[in-house]
Each structure stands twice: as structure tokens, then as C-alpha cells.
Amino acid sequence: MPARLIVSGVSKSFVMHLRGGVQIPVISGVSFSLDAGECVVLGGPSGIGKSSILKMVYGNYGVDSGQIIAVRPDGKMTDIASANARTIHALRRSTIGYVSQFLRAVPRVSARDVVAEPLAGQGIAREEALGRAEELLEKLNLPKALWDLPPATFSGGEQQRVNIARGFITSHPVLLLDEPTASLDAQNRQVVVDLIRDKKAAGTAMLGIFHDQDVRDAVADRIVDVARFSGRGEAAA
């Protein structure tokens, strides 16, 4: 299967100017690649920099050094580490999707519209987008009564299901999963596992963080141990 994402020699640290300019290394020398139809899970204890890697790949953390090459649907390659804001925006529309842990709730927009929105952004007709959104919400067992309500007042698990639906609705070739099952019950966890398997079968390349051992075992093709890139580990050694 062709490579969708190539991460090589990526380092990241934070400089905390409000704390006297102290430099906090996060990770360094991160290198791995991700093929189409494959689910790679970032492993290692919490606080080791797994989320930071996802955020760098998605472009919302800057990269100190190294390259993150994304392969766009048209076969062209973009280095996310050095791309400008507009390029990253275009990449998010065409290539890289993200399912975050928390929903950033927008007031007054219904759950159904929140889910359908990314499709509308890709130019898909509203009716079709809403239909797909309903299918997903149904699959994720979100009560129908909630579909027309803004998710701001939903429980954590309900919000997360809205968020998952929103993340899975598009057919981005690369999908980043940041603990999508964290606050779900067993039944809904299984739904997510099925969704991930469907995506895999469709050739989507996925990079994820899963703390849940069962889910990880069910979906991971490979595990990349982030501990070996840990900036903190190096600093300690």
C-alpha cells in the first residue's frame, strides 16, 4: 500500500516565556510512516508526547525541525512542518481529518449540522450531507431527540459521539484519532472499532492514540512506541 504520511526527524519543544524562558523538550527525532489502509497507534505512557505528534501532523502545533510529508489525493506531497497556514487549511479540507477528544461546541448549531458541516465544506449538497450525518448518529446510538439540539448541553459521552460522527463523516485519506473512545461505553466503543475497520477497508490511513487496550488490540496494525522519541527521556538519560 502506498505511503500517505511520512514523518522524519521531527522535534518539538516548548519555550515558556512566562516562566523565564524555560525550554521544555517534548520529543525529538520522531520518524515513522503511515500507509493507506493501515492504522498505526502511538504507544507509550501518558505525557510522553503522543498528542503533540498528532497536533503537529494536523498543523496546530509548530515543528522545530524535521519533516512531515502528507501525500494529497492528487499524489502531490506537502511538508506540513514548513507549510503556510493556507496550505494547511487546504490540506485539512482535502487530506487530513481529525477526531479530537473534546468537542468544541458551537452555540445554536444542531448536532446534525455539526456533523454534516465538514461535508458541506467539501462542497457536498446539504441534503446528502445531512443524510450521511443521520446515518452516523444512528450508528453511534445518539438518541434521535438530540439530533436537532446544539450539543453544548450534551453529556461528555454524547458530545464525543457527535464529535466522532463529525470526524468520520468525510473520506479524508488520512485520519487522526485522539482517544476517540475515551468516554464511551462498551457498545459504542465497538461501533467506533467497526467504523475504524470500515475506514481501513476503504484505504484510509489512520494514526491514533488509544488508552483502551481492547480497542488498541482490535484496530492497531502497528504500534509506534513514542517513548523512544521522548525529549524528556533523553534529557533524563
Binding site: 497536533k55 496546530n60 502545533y61 497556514a85
Partner: peptide
């Protein structure tokens, strides 16, 4: 830069 990068990873 990107709004979420400025807000999540300000330099």
C-alpha cells in the same frame, strides 16, 4: 499563522 496554532502553540 493558523488561528489554532497561534492559540495552542504560541511562540
Amino acid at each position: 499563522g493558523l488561528t489554532d496554532r497561534i492559540l495552542d502553540d504560541p511562540r
